[in-house]
Design a protein around this nucleic acid. Structure first.
Lengths: 138, 138
DNA sequence: CTCAATGCAAAACCTTTGCATGGCG
DNA sequence: CGCCATGCAAAGGTTTTGCATTGAG
């Protein structure tokens, strides 16, 4: 996992525990996982980990900005590693993601928002479909 | 509400009930509502409506494509009317939305996706922040 | 009339929380 | 060692479901 993440924990007076490492590791490997999925993957590696701990840490890590909730068209809450500002291609089948070097946010859009007196906080852009592997099997 | 929506119900052998009309009406007026909020607004107009009916219909109308789940960074599931392809400015406080005439999807992006062997199904773009009214009060 | 849809209430799910115990710094 | 974090289990909130009844076509 990214060392910076652990340092950020420490800087905030929080402890580095095996459980937190594990969660960060999982979100390093996969993106777009639900709380349940993360808990399940965590249990595979450390059976004693409790669901409460997983959710508590997901919340805490979100607040620290290390991970984030992501948009999802199906309405299901998922998490991803927040180490980069990025937009994704998300595979609807395997849930794997491909980062794309494209951000729709631009000056034109900023001005458009201002025209409505709207103050932008953040944005989200997501492209959903099927990755190369899953396209084959479909 | 949009008459087309009712026809689509009929075309699928489904019935037009006061409850369904009500839900569509509510999502005509407001966007970005949670299931609970919709149920609550529905109860205001028709106290006898049951939560089960609301959720059953939200699911059914989603499957028909009349409404859709929307992305939300806070992980909370919301619904909106699917009558138009649109992108929004969403106010984080009052939940009102402003439609913007801007779609990030373009040829460049299509090609980028193809480069990864990715087959695009749909996409979602959302700008969050504060509307004119809520900005004042903040 | 008939079958789909509703209301009601219980169940299922996911997430959060209180409390005693354990373990990182 | 002290205090934060964990595990456990119970509580909370939202969504789903079974069943008898109602009502749209």
């Amino acid at each position: 996992m990214v060392d910076e993440q652990l340092k950020k924990l420490q800087r905030n007076g929080l402890k580095i525990t095996p459980q937190r490492k594990l969660i960060l590791d999982i979100l390093e490997e996969f993106s777009q996982l639900t709380g349940e999925e993360i808990a399940s993957l965590a249990r595979d590696k450390q059976p004693s980990i409790s669901t409460g701990t997983v959710y508590r840490n997901l919340k805490l890590l979100s607040e620290l900005g290390l991970i984030r909730n992501v948009a999802s068209i199906d309405g299901i809450r998922r998490f991803e590693n927040a180490s980069v500002h990025s937009h994704h291609l998300v595979c609807l089948r395997c849930k794997n993601t491909v980062e794309i070097d494209f951000c729709p946010m631009n000056n034109e859009l900023q001005k458009l928002a201002e025209k409505y007196g709207f103050q932008i906080a953040d944005h989200d852009f997501q492209i959903r479909g099927y990755c190369m592997e899953c396209k084959k099997g479909a």
